[in-house]
Amino acid sequence: MSAHTSRFPWNLLVGFVLSIALTLLAVFVTFYTDFSSSVILWIIGAFAIFQAIIQLFMFMHVTEGKEGIINVINIVNSMILALIIIFGTIWVLTSGHAAM
């Protein structure tokens, strides 16, 4: 890892360019395509997740260090919790509420 650090940080540059490109692509899909709203949401949601993965691996080096695997398990666990909280809340407070 530090054996490579004197080199030019290509992974950072690639990550940065990809983030900018994905952001612009998300704006393009949102405002300049004729997909339905839900299709647009799925596409830009996928872009957001891809960008988050770029940050985690190319910028934050999540797998680095002796505890790399623990870091990954911890972050995956937190993301699962986040999804349960978000979709669980929406489900209970919209469809669950309407069913009563």
């Binding site: 972050i75 937190s78 993301m79 919790l81 986040a82 978000i86 809340t89």
Partner: peptide, 10 residues
């Protein structure tokens, strides 16, 4: 992550 998830959910 969990903190922001609760704010997104609300």
């Amino acid at each position: 992550i969990v903190l922001f998830a609760t704010l997104f959910a609300s």
